[in-house]
């Protein structure tokens, strides 16, 4: 089933997502993003040099987790245009990270592309680790495909 913009409204919650993070999650994500910095795979470096409690998820991998969270909701026709996120605290092995999201607005631009603006958080228990705002294009109807937009017809 394709999520279309008529099924989306401001205030709507996205389905939650929880994931138990392990050291493997952190290392796999760092290497998948070609991030070789030691605080994402070397416990001794992370704790003794960076002063953190453990290795922690790297920024590009968190972006990939946000992408997964958003497109789990939209389905494959959803096309992310813009994403901004702020790291407030780190996500460590043995944390259970929980994603929550809300639609803050919907709109249609001058090119006829429909958009949903989202606020998303990643928390571990009571600890807010990351906040994100995202703008995702959503089909206007079952025949619309945001991925077909190019050049001036794509204004993220």
């Amino acid at each position: 089933m394709t999520l279309t913009i008529d099924q989306v409204s401001a205030g709507q919650s996205l389905p939650s997502l929880a994931h138990d993070v392990s050291a493997t999650t952190v290392v796999l994500g760092a290497l998948a993003s070609r991030d070789w910095r030691p605080m994402h795979h070397d416990f001794k470096f992370a704790t003794e040099r960076n002063g953190t409690q453990d290795i922690f998820l790297n920024t590009p991998n968190l972006a990939a987790w946000f992408e997964r969270y958003i497109t789990d909701w939209t389905g494959p026709r959803g096309r992310i245009g813009r994403m901004t996120f702020r790291m407030r605290d780190s996500v460590f092995p043995d944390d259970r990270m929980e994603f929550a999201g809300t639609v803050t607005a919907t709109s249609t631009d001058d090119q006829g592309c429909a958009w949903a603006d989202l606020d998303i958080t990643v928390s571990v228990g009571e600890r807010l680790c990351c906040t994100c705002t995202a703008r995702v294009a959503i089909p206007t109807d079952e025949s619309d495909n945001p991925w077909a937009r190019k050049g001036q017809n794509w204004t993220p």
Binding site: R49, N50, T59, P60, L62, A63, R79, I80, G81, R82, M83, T84, F85, R86, M87, W147, K150, W154, P156
Partner: peptide, 14 residues
């Protein structure tokens, strides 16, 4: 020492 605090992406042609 350094950390990254904010990151933004604007996505155009795939």
């Amino acid at each position: 020492e350094a950390i990254m605090s904010d990151n933004s992406l604007i996505l155009h042609e795939p």
